[in-house]
């Protein structure tokens, strides 16, 4: 028991340095992700074109000096759409995961802290949600609410909330039995104060680790939903949407879907490298403790 408690505290205090130190691959992953993020942020400076303006005279052109990744069937520059698409895809994924982290984390802490019926109710609902495969869950939500950016965020968040709830609940169960929490009770602190100021800091690290892993999944879900036509409304570019449009013209212009697919692959891969590194950094066995 003492060991577990010690670990939890350590987990919470894992420094960025420790994580990055753990392996070169993590460095590479971080570097790729940072570069992609910067490209998304500075998109307007990296291309002379507008992502939605059509050019009837330049339809489905092959990659060239003018259009690095060619043009799509509306004559729009694919490189530009990829850059602006990255903004949307990354934004949706990060916002969804952060929202899920906050809601799922809170639910987990509440379930673990109160125990009993509250725990039962929350965790059974989470179990039900977990029983749906992530993509199916996303599909159901978007099909019900309609396709829009907010609904996509909600759909993706809903698929990952239960995972955060589980991750937050486990350490809460052990932390709440520690003496200082009992001391809080004795001082007459409110439940909310105890949960926010005394339990949350001990749970935060682990939730954050899981978060970095789930952004990759969120990107994949967003791309998949857009691909099957449940994504953001046209003409807004997203990576999944670009793959979908490229797929329709795959035999004429294979580069469109290929480039967009590669982009998803590279970013998901980089996030997985980061996630692996973070996990290794916080795993005491691998650190030789």
């Amino acid at each position: 028991m003492i060991n577990t408690l010690a670990l939890n505290v350590k987990t919470a205090t894992v420094s960025t340095y420790q994580i990055l130190k753990s392996s070169k691959l993590t460095w590479i992953g971080t570097l790729i992700f940072v570069i992609v993020t910067l490209m998304a942020v500075f998109a307007p400076y990296l291309t002379p074109y507008d992502p939605i303006s059509q050019d009837p005279l330049a339809v489905l052109q092959e990659p060239s000096a003018l259009h690095w990744m060619g043009t799509d069937s509306y004559g729009r520059d694919v490189w530009t759409r990829m850059l602006y698409g990255a903004r949307i895809s990354l934004f949706i994924s990060v916002v969804a995961v952060v929202a899920a982290m906050i809601i799922g984390g809170a639910l987990g802490i509440v379930a673990g802290y109160y125990g009993g019926r509250v725990d039962m109710m929350i965790m059974r609902v989470m179990d039900i949600m977990l029983s749906f495969p992530t993509l199916i869950m996303g599909l159901i939500v978007v099909a019900m609410l309609g396709a829009s950016m907010t609904n996509l965020v909600i759909a993706i968040a809903l698929t990952v909330i239960p995972k955060f709830a589980r991750v937050a609940r486990a350490p809460t169960l052990s932390v709440k039995k520690r003496e200082y929490i009992e001391a809080c009770y004795a001082l007459g602190y409110s439940d909310i104060r105890i949960m926010v100021f005394h339990i949350l800091p001990n749970v935060f690290g682990e939730v954050l680790v899981i978060g970095s892993l789930w952004i990759a999944t969120a990107i994949r879900i967003e791309a998949s939903l857009s691909f099957i036509g449940l994504g953001i409304k046209p003409p807004t570019p997203t990576w999944g949407g670009i793959i979908r449009e490229g797929f329709n013209n795959f035999l004429d212009a294979p580069w469109i879907a290929t480039y967009a697919g590669l982009a998803v692959l590279v970013v998901v891969f980089s996030l997985n490298l980061i996630g692996d590194g973070v996990r290794d950094a916080v795993d005491p066995k691998l650190r030789g403790e």
Partner: peptide
Amino acid sequence: KPMQIVQA
């Protein structure tokens, strides 16, 4: 397709 062109 024509709808997206009209949209633009």
